[in-house]
Amino acid sequence: MQLSLRFPNDNNTLGIDQQFLIGSAILVSPNLVSVNRQRQTTTVHAYIPQDVWYQFPSGVKVQVAGIFTDLDAPLEKINVHVRGGFIIPMQIPGANLVMGRQNPFILLVAQSAAGNASGNLFWDDGDSIDSIETKTYNYFEFSLVSNALTIHAIVTNYKDSPMRLEIVRILGISKLVTSVTVNEKDYKNFSYNIADQILVVDGLDMNMLAQSSQTIAWTTTIN
């Protein structure tokens, strides 16, 4: 998607044709010049629209937005940024697509300036053309409000994939995380990086099909 379609009131996005959005949440800024040997460069002059953005995969928050900036972009690197306010489901990769579909999921939670985020996941067998009509699919909605991530299982009719959540990464937590609960029970397997402001909750092995609603919550210091 062109940036100007998602940010129609931002005149800086007009005419940008070497960056693009995947949906509303993922900004891709490839180095298209580096493939030309006569003009080879290791940086890309990219525009970061006015909003909260995080570097991917590091999760570090971008400090300035609404400006053009030079990004480090050697040939082997593609600059990707995740927009605040969105939750992106990912899956631990496998040796091939069939094997990978059996692997656990990861939720990447990119907080907005207000500390909220949302996302969803549709999952079927990947082949059928009538899964919606036959209702043989799973559909989840994710929401982050007030330091609580809720997983809503809306439709749970496809049982051939283990819909297990292993890792949750929450970006943009500025205060020290002191405790985590999973479905209102204390959970100790978490880490918080105060410099990067990232909370990682690991080893969950949560069956997302087991309940209609499940919650991962955390508390932080007051100051």
Rank of each mutant, 00 (worst) to 15 (best):
A113R: 05
V177E: 02
V33K: 07
A153M: 09
G100H: 01
H81Q: 14
G59H: 04
L107T: 09
E76L: 15
N116V: 03
H81W: 07
S161E: 08
W218N: 13
G94V: 05
D186C: 07
Y54D: 06
N79C: 02
D51M: 09
H45F: 14
R6E: 03
Q211H: 11
D124W: 05
P30A: 10
S29F: 00
K188N: 11
S213E: 14
Q19E: 10
I170L: 04
L107W: 12
A65Q: 02
T150S: 12
V64N: 05
I170Q: 01
P49Y: 00
D196I: 06
Q50Y: 11
P30F: 08
S24L: 12
T220E: 14
T178R: 12
M1C: 00
T219A: 13
Q55M: 07
I129K: 15
Y47I: 00
D127Y: 15
I67T: 03
L199A: 06
I67F: 01
P8V: 06
S146D: 05
I222G: 04
Q102W: 06
M90K: 14
V200M: 11
I198M: 07
M208I: 10
Y139W: 15
P162D: 11
K61R: 13
M206H: 10
N157M: 03
N103W: 01
F56N: 10
T136Q: 15
G172S: 05
F140C: 00
A153G: 11
E184P: 07
V28F: 09
D186K: 14
S34I: 10
G15S: 05
A195N: 12
N138G: 04
A195S: 12
V155W: 08
T42E: 13
Q19A: 02
P104D: 13
S112V: 03
R169D: 09
M90P: 07
V82P: 05
K159Q: 13
F68D: 03
T134A: 02
L71W: 15
G84N: 04
V52G: 07
G85D: 06
N223A: 11
A65N: 01
N189C: 08
I78G: 12
Y47K: 08
Y54I: 00
N207H: 06
W123E: 14
Y192E: 13
D205V: 07
I222C: 05
G119V: 08
S213C: 11
F20N: 00
G84C: 02
V182S: 10
E76C: 12
V109Q: 10
V44Y: 07
E141W: 06
L97N: 13
T41H: 01
T221Y: 02
P104N: 12
